[in-house]
Simulated assay, not measured.
Amino acid sequence: MAGEAKAALFEALAEVAKALANGRRAELIDTLAQGERSVEELAEIIGQSVANTSQHLQRLLRAGLVTTRREGTRIYYSLASSAVYTLWRTMTETADRHVKDLGELAEAFLGDRSAMQTIGRDELRTRMRAGDVVVLDVRPDAEYRSGHIRGALSVPTSQLKSRLSDIPSGLDVVAYCRGPYCVMADDAVRYLDRQGRRAIRLEGGFPEWAEEGRPVAAGN
């Protein structure tokens, strides 16, 4: 009897791992770490149909990793708590240390980062206080509105070329996006470098900054 109860307990605990054991569901968690999104928005981001995306979200919902709310005919999803993001961050950091060939897979997606200058979160906060950097949030507008580094300028990568003149000159530019495996900040840094601007990528992204209790803001 005790053996059956123990087995049932550990099976229940394993449900979280089972829910995350799918690349598309992992990508959904990574996206929802930026803030609440509708099913339709999530489907576009992960490149799946609305029906398939809904199935993945329902699996995450049954595992208790996400919550929902309805607004009219639309359903919006968000992470169930900050603990879900902490789990996701720990999982990615563990994979970075121990999964063979992960670095090669990341480079195939993100490109060669060896020459890209980066800045840590502590150093960025110090420099923001000194006023000698411009911080760019290059995520989509909806994610910026959900939450961003306080004082950051919203310039999504899709608008970078047309809004280059909006970025103050004479200062280093620090770009950030969703996290360590997000390509948007890399693209922004490379583009700005080609334009003769001194550009730096923030280590991690907005979720890491927020999780550590650093200044954030929401809205436009």
Rank of each mutant, 00 (worst) to 15 (best):
residue 2 A to N: 10
residue 6 K to W: 12
residue 8 A to Q: 09
residue 8 A to D: 10
residue 17 A to F: 15
residue 18 K to V: 13
residue 19 A to L: 06
residue 19 A to I: 05
residue 24 R to S: 15
residue 26 A to L: 15
residue 32 L to Q: 02
residue 33 A to Q: 00
residue 33 A to K: 03
residue 36 E to A: 14
residue 36 E to H: 12
residue 42 L to V: 03
residue 42 L to K: 00
residue 43 A to P: 10
residue 45 I to W: 11
residue 46 I to A: 08
residue 47 G to D: 13
residue 48 Q to W: 13
residue 48 Q to R: 13
residue 49 S to P: 08
residue 49 S to E: 14
residue 49 S to Q: 11
residue 49 S to F: 09
residue 50 V to S: 06
residue 53 T to Y: 02
residue 55 Q to H: 11
residue 58 Q to C: 04
residue 60 L to Q: 03
residue 61 L to H: 09
residue 70 R to D: 08
residue 70 R to V: 06
residue 72 G to Y: 04
residue 72 G to Q: 04
residue 72 G to M: 01
residue 74 R to I: 05
residue 77 Y to W: 11
residue 79 L to K: 04
residue 79 L to D: 02
residue 80 A to N: 05
residue 80 A to K: 04
residue 81 S to A: 01
residue 83 A to G: 08
residue 84 V to W: 01
residue 88 W to V: 04
residue 89 R to V: 01
residue 92 T to S: 07
residue 92 T to P: 07
residue 93 E to G: 05
residue 94 T to A: 10
residue 95 A to E: 05
residue 96 D to F: 09
residue 97 R to Q: 04
residue 102 L to P: 10
residue 102 L to V: 12
residue 105 L to C: 08
residue 108 A to F: 08
residue 108 A to I: 07
residue 114 S to F: 03
residue 116 M to K: 01
residue 118 T to I: 06
residue 119 I to M: 14
residue 121 R to K: 00
residue 124 L to S: 09
residue 124 L to Y: 11
residue 126 T to G: 13
residue 126 T to I: 11
residue 129 R to V: 14
residue 133 V to S: 11
residue 133 V to T: 12
residue 135 V to Q: 00
residue 135 V to E: 05
residue 137 D to P: 13
residue 139 R to A: 03
residue 139 R to V: 07
residue 141 D to P: 14
residue 143 E to W: 09
residue 145 R to G: 03
residue 146 S to K: 08
residue 149 I to P: 04
residue 150 R to N: 07
residue 151 G to S: 01
residue 152 A to W: 01
residue 154 S to E: 03
residue 155 V to Q: 00
residue 155 V to S: 02
residue 160 L to D: 03
residue 164 L to V: 05
residue 164 L to A: 03
residue 167 I to D: 00
residue 175 A to Q: 01
residue 176 Y to I: 08
residue 176 Y to Q: 05
residue 177 C to P: 00
residue 177 C to M: 01
residue 179 G to M: 04
residue 180 P to M: 03
residue 182 C to L: 10
residue 185 A to P: 08
residue 185 A to R: 06
residue 186 D to Y: 13
residue 190 R to F: 06
residue 191 Y to M: 09
residue 191 Y to F: 15
residue 195 Q to Y: 01
residue 198 R to F: 10
residue 199 A to M: 01
residue 202 L to S: 07
residue 203 E to D: 15
residue 203 E to T: 08
residue 204 G to Q: 02
residue 205 G to R: 02
residue 210 A to R: 11
residue 213 G to F: 09
residue 218 A to G: 12
residue 218 A to R: 10
residue 218 A to N: 09
residue 218 A to K: 11
